[in-house]
């Protein structure tokens, strides 16, 4: 039994435990931040920021500093650059995103190839959760704790600035600041997810569990819990498949999340395709 082997290995191997904790935490924080990303219509922005982290990571390696610092710098600079281009020309927001993140990502790829082996690039792009070191695990835990604490404390502000930014601004909330803070949190989540799912697939963990939860509830706080739960569950099951069949962890985790989304899309009590079709049929007859 593969499952028993997996549980057995979990109790025995230190590296697998670290992989488990890290990927569950990544599932939770991607799920939480993802809710705000999709509700603000920033799914594409999430993709852009996650890719923009690459040159930051490369430069940090070269300078020998923590890759977290470089990642946040290039991530936030890209977010500002996208805003700058779309506000100061006729270029639309989605065009600006397309231009900025591909350019920054391309620079990142060249920087990485200058560095070391191409295996590093592969792991950064697609994740290699089984090589998570203790320091990486703690970094993920700290980022996770910060994000959960911030979302808990500023839930009210996040809710109103997402749902009705004009009203939020009218009563004096610094909506722009909230936007940039969210961009910073997004880069932090991306960095934390580097080893679990990799840069290319982070966006799936941000969007898919949140979108699944979005189909299942009409309350934001329930959506946050559901999305975090779905993210964590996907990570857990994905890790199992990755370990048992020697597959890239990022890919298996994302496929599990996509499977759960498909279930919700078809069978969600309020939004599911199945019930909607049935309802339409019965209302016609």
């Amino acid at each position: 039994m593969k499952l028993l082997d997996f549980i057995n290995a979990l109790t025995r191997y230190d590296f697998l435990q670290k992989a488990l904790f890290t990927s569950i935490m990544v599932g939770v924080i991607c799920g939480v931040i993802g809710c705000f990303i999709i509700l603000r219509g920033m799914a594409l922005m999430g993709d852009a920021i996650s890719h923009a982290v690459l040159p930051g990571v490369a430069v940090s390696y070269m300078l020998g500093i923590n890759f977290f610092i470089g990642a946040v710098v290039t991530g936030v600079l890209t977010a500002i650059g996208i805003g700058f281009i779309s506000q100061n020309s006729r270029i639309k927001h989605d065009m600006a995103i397309g231009i900025m993140f591909t350019s920054v990502f391309a620079v990142g790829i060249i920087l990485i190839t200058f560095m070391k082996s191409s295996a590093d690039l592969y792991h950064i792009l697609f994740g290699n959760v089984l090589s998570v070191r203790t320091s990486d695990m703690w970094l993920t835990m700290i980022i996770g704790a910060i994000i959960i604490a911030l979302v808990y404390l500023f839930y009210k502000e996040l809710l109103v600035s997402t749902f009705d930014p004009t009203m939020a601004q009218a009563y004096g909330l610094q909506v722009k600041w909230i936007h940039y803070c969210l961009m910073i949190l997004l880069t932090m989540v991306t960095v934390a997810s580097l080893q679990t799912v990799g840069i290319v697939l982070v966006v799936a963990m941000l969007i898919t569990p949140a979108a699944t939860a979005y189909l299942l509830t009409n309350r934001l706080w329930i959506m946050l819990y559901l999305s975090a739960g779905i993210g964590a569950f996907s990570s857990l099951v994905g890790l199992y498949f990755s370990f048992s069949y020697n597959l890239a962890s990022g890919a298996t985790i994302v496929i599990v999340a996509a499977f759960l989304f498909t279930l919700a899309f078809l069978f969600s009590p309020s939004q599911g395709l199945l019930w909607r079709t049935l309802k339409r049929k019965t209302s016609i007859t």
Binding site: L39, L159, T162, F163, D164, T166, M167, A170, Y171, G172, Y214, T217, N218, R219, L220, I222, M223
Partner: peptide, 19 residues
């Protein structure tokens, strides 16, 4: 600001929002 209430235009709102 705290003495003012504002009701925005209908099309400024995302009516699918989970609220």
């Amino acid at each position: 600001r705290k003495f003012i209430a504002y009701v925005p235009q209908r099309n400024d709102i995302d009516w699918d929002f989970p609220i």
